[in-house]
Nucleic acid binder design. Structure first.
Length: 844
RNA sequence: GGACAAUUAGCUCAGCUGGUUAGAGCGUUGCAUUCACAUUGCAAAGGUCGCUGGUUCGAAUCCAGCAUUGUCCACCA
């Protein structure tokens, strides 16, 4: 066995270990055990991974490695998302730098470019995922645009079309003029913006608007039915002249009109507003489209044709002002709609698009898609962690409207619909015959990702994987895509395969910077996971992301925190180094020492540490199964550093002959830590000379030892700490041997304390005068000089104790307390009182 | 406008379904140096758990209200 370095050098081990894992085939699910599966939320192929991805990988790898150690048939399936608009944007931006547009290249050549970019991106991302130590089954890697995903998409589309759940219609949609595409409602973000509210005269009625240019498309005026000012106008037709554009406006009443806003009368623009569109349908208004897909004014805008929206607004307002048609202009804070991908202002406009009907009854099921998705969570098929997101989910589902799924971009799944004059064909492949032309549009990227849990397992084919691993066990993802993705997966899965896509949804929070700000390129406060791995090692990064992060809550990350866990990883390394070096020494002397001497087990300290080990084996498993990764990590950390290293190893140095017990503890400890920090644990495992991999070991069994030893060992700890305290405050060197006397009812304490005395520098003496240190059953008197200042401190301590005793006595005399509190609580309180009294007695 | 969360030591956060004299890490202070580890060890200081009421024998924990911060949703033109 080679000598281990003083400090764990992560970079010397990580890549080789990953290769060894991958080569061993252990990332693939085994043949036995119950199934445990997670499908990786596919990262977008837009470039590289950020720290949020690193966090996601850490959480999932903990679960996956844990279940593998439990002997489950464990699958973690990797894949990536083509992220239609996002990816196309990146490539278009690059083209633009060279002065080109996608139209210069044409569809096929442009798509080749995007595909090449996506392939490069995938390579980079794969590398990053591996750097994190993620134990994914790469033999099953998938892509949302690969062949079988395409088949799944087309199959789903056709079925929904045949069931009447997908339809084509002319409706107001969210249009991004920059992306040249529609967006779903939830892909629109809202930003507060300082703008102006213009009061425009429509003859004798004045309407208020933030968007004067759309007024050119007004065909109605809405008022509240209760509004006395306008009552007599309802049903009338107004004619307004907007700089030569004559508007014919039907006045109608609707309860949703806010009488207190503006003038109480609203100009209605059916072609450029969702609300107005609904009103127009109800009140039979006509549609005038004044803004086109480029964000420019149409022919219907008369003299303003060809101007951009902004230009038109400025010119029209100036013209109207000159003509005396503007009553006033007020400052106003507006909620601006912008594209979530590029931030461009959304133009709502009417357009012919494909939609998924969420409120239509599914033939043969008697329920709507929306109802299916709500039931899946309500009836307990799916558990969301933390559960407060149930409410958010239901609220969103209740408000869900038909989902616009067609996008006017090139990169993505082409809509499987063909047209021939007025004939239409929907199918998996092009129809035969002359004159069929496929729809130019592609599908919303979320359409393909909504099938992800089962399309990755082979659907629509009935594969063994689909049978074994679906529904998946856990969906681990960020709460920010609960709607985009999680909700849509539930919708599609319950409809298409009559199964929930996953049993548990674990939602993690965002990773923020030290000040709690969102990490972003513009702020430059992002932390690159690869930099951190290079600096501190992947294990340290994983731990810093795992510990301190609770589900659904954002967590902060900064270098000092990662450095702290790097220190811990090194501590684990050195604990192992010590244990291994000791056992090596003994091996050399093996012939001289009898077996009974080597395994001098079962001292008080042995019993204590083995009891603690049992506890931590059980609690770590429980914590991981309950998704409390942070708590699991914290408790293990405490066991490893504060109990094993700080106490047991020190005792072991004194008592000696603990090679077997130490090695056995180390083996178990490495298994417990493996899900959290797989690299260092596997590295140590191999340094121990193990021939098989740690990652395929089995989770240790709890031995159910009698744990009475715990308490007695804690007495020793208390006494030792008290002695050190005295040394520290009186500045007595640890080397100075102190005379003392020990009184205790527990014999083991006396024995062990004499061993530990070497630590504390104690000398046993029959009777000594000096300062008394005590815990419940131990009393130690140290021969040290009195010190006025410190005696004062002891007096203050005594004072505090007396107060506490008084409180406890009052509590125990209180009849109401004694009669109502449970017995255990009363006993506990009595014990506390007794301890305080004893302590006080010895102090004075 | 609605909903949700957070508010605990200088900083970052634990604290499960009420029973602690409220914990950890970092930071701070003092001490220790050829010991597995200075990426270390030992010890200490530091909090009336946002505010006000209520329920209870007992509240950081449950309830109500308020304040501050943050997030999400919503068609207020």
């Amino acid at each position: 066995m080679s000598e281990l370095s003083k400090i764990y050098q992560a970079e010397n081990y990580e890549d080789a270990l990953y290769q060894a894992w991958e080569k061993s085939g252990a990332f693939k699910p085994g043949k036995k055990g119950k199934a445990f599966s997670i499908v990786l939320p596919p990262p977008n192929v837009t470039g590289k991974l950020h720290i949020g991805h690193a966090a996601m990988l850490a959480y999932q790898d903990v679960m996956v490695r844990y279940h593998r150690l439990q002997g489950d048939k464990t699958l973690w399936l990797p894949g990536m998302d083509h992220a239609a608009i996002a990816t196309q944007n990146v490539v278009e931006k690059e083209l633009k730098k060279a002065g080109h547009s996608r139209y210069d290249l044409g569809r096929p050549r442009f798509l080749n470019k995007v595909e090449a970019f996506a392939e490069d991106s995938k390579k980079v991302i794969r590398g990053q995922i591996k750097k994190m130590g993620s134990s994914l089954d790469w033999s099953r890697e998938r892509f949302t645009l690969d062949e079988s995903s395409s088949l799944a998409v087309k199959t789903a589309f056709k079925k929904m079309y045949d069931d009447g759940l997908i339809y084509r219609g002319e409706r107001v949609v969210n249009w991004c003029p920059r992306c040249q595409s529609t967006l779903a409602d939830d892909e629109v973000e809202h930003r507060e913006e300082q703008s102006k509210l213009y009061y425009i005269k429509y003859g004798h009625v004045t309407v208020a608007t933030t968007r004067p240019e759309t007024k050119l498309g007004d065909t109605g005026v809405a008022v509240n039915p209760k509004d006395e000012r306008y009552k007599k106008l309802v049903g009338e037709k107004l004619v307004a002249d907007l700089m030569g554009n004559f508007l014919v406006l039907k006045v109608f009443a609707d309860r949703e009109v806010d009488m207190t806003f503006g003038t109480g009368a609203i100009g209605v623009t059916p072609a450029h507003s969702q609300t107005d569109y609904q009103w127009a349908l109800k009140n039979d208004l006509s549609f005038i489209k004044v803004i086109n897909e480029e964000g420019k004014m149409t022919e219907a805008a008369g003299q303003y044709q060809g101007l951009t929206v902004k230009e038109c607004r400025e010119k029209l307002v100036a013209d109207l002002q000159k003509a005396g048609k503007i009553e006033k202009i007020e400052e106003y804070t507006n909620n601006l709609s912008v594209c979530y991908r590029c931030g461009t202002t959304i133009e709502p406009l009417t357009s012919k698009q494909w939609f998924v009907a969420v409120d239509k009854k599914i033939p043969g099921r008697g329920k709507t898609l929306k109802q299916l998705a709500i039931e899946a969570v309500k009836k307990g098929g799916i558990k969301i962690i933390p559960d407060r997101f149930n409410k958010t989910y239901f609220q969103w589902m209740d408000n869900l409207r038909d989902w616009c799924i067609s996008r006017q971009i090139w990169y993505g799944h082409r809509i499987p619909v063909w047209y021939n004059q007025d004939k239409i064909f929907v199918g998996l492949t092009a129809p035969t015959g002359e004159g069929w032309i496929q729809d130019e549009d592609t599908l919303d990227t979320w359409f393909s990702s909504s099938l992800w849990t089962f399309s990755t397992l082979g659907w629509p084919k009935k594969t063994p994987d689909l049978k074994t691993f679906h529904p998946t066990s856990v969906m681990e993802t960020g709460y920010d895509i609960l709607f985009f993705w999680v909700a849509r997966m539930i919708l599609m899965s319950t409809y298409l395969i009559k199964e929930v896509p996953f049993k548990t949804v674990y939602l993690h929070g965002l990773v923020r910077d030290k000040e709690g700000r969102k990490m972003s390129k513009s702020l430059g406060n992002g932390i690159d996971p690869l930099d951190m791995i290079a600096k501190f090692g992947a294990d340290a990064l994983r731990l810093s992301l795992l510990v301190g992060a609770t589900p659904g809550n954002d967590a902060r990350l900064y270098e000092e925190k990662i450095a702290g866990y790097r220190n811990f990883v090194n501590k684990l390394w050195n604990i192992s180094r010590y244990i291994l070096s000791k056992s090596q020494e003994t091996n050399h002397k093996k012939q001289k020492i009898s077996k009974s001497q080597i395994t001098k087990l079962e001292t008080l300290a042995d019993k204590w540490i083995l009891g603690e080990l049992d506890k931590i084996i059980a609690s770590t498993a429980k914590n991981i199964e309950e998704f409390k990764f942070s708590a699991a990590g914290e408790e293990l950390y405490e066991f490893t550093w504060s109990k094993l290293a700080d106490w047991y190893l020190e005792v072991a140095k004194i008592e000696g002959g603990k090679d077997q017990i130490l090695l056995s503890i180390l083996e178990k400890l490495l298994i417990l830590w493996h899900p959290f920090c797989p690299f260092v644990t596997e590295a140590i495992w191999s340094e121990m000379g193990k021939k098989t991999l740690l990652m395929i070991e089995r989770w240790p069994k709890v031995l159910v030892k009698k744990q009475a030893a715990s308490h007695d060992f804690e007495l020793i700890q208390q006494a030792v700490t008290a002695i050190r305290n005295i040394r520290s405050e009186r500045q007595i060197s640890p080397k100075e041997i102190l005379d003392c006397s020990i009184k205790t009812s527990v014999k083991a304490v006396k024995d062990n304390l004499s061993l530990l005395a070497g630590l504390a520098g104690l000398k046993i003496a029959a009777s000594v005068k000096g300062i008394t240190v005590n815990s419940t059953k131990v009393e130690i008197t140290l021969a040290v000089q009195a010190n006025a200042e410190l005696d004062k401190k002891r007096a203050a301590e005594a004072m505090q104790l007396r107060q506490y005793i008084e409180v406890q006595q009052r509590k125990l005399k209180n009849q109401v307390f004694v009669s109502r509190a449970p017995k255990e609580v009363i006993l506990k309180e009595k014990e506390k009182l007794k301890q305080a009294q004893e302590k006080l007695q010895k102090l004075s």
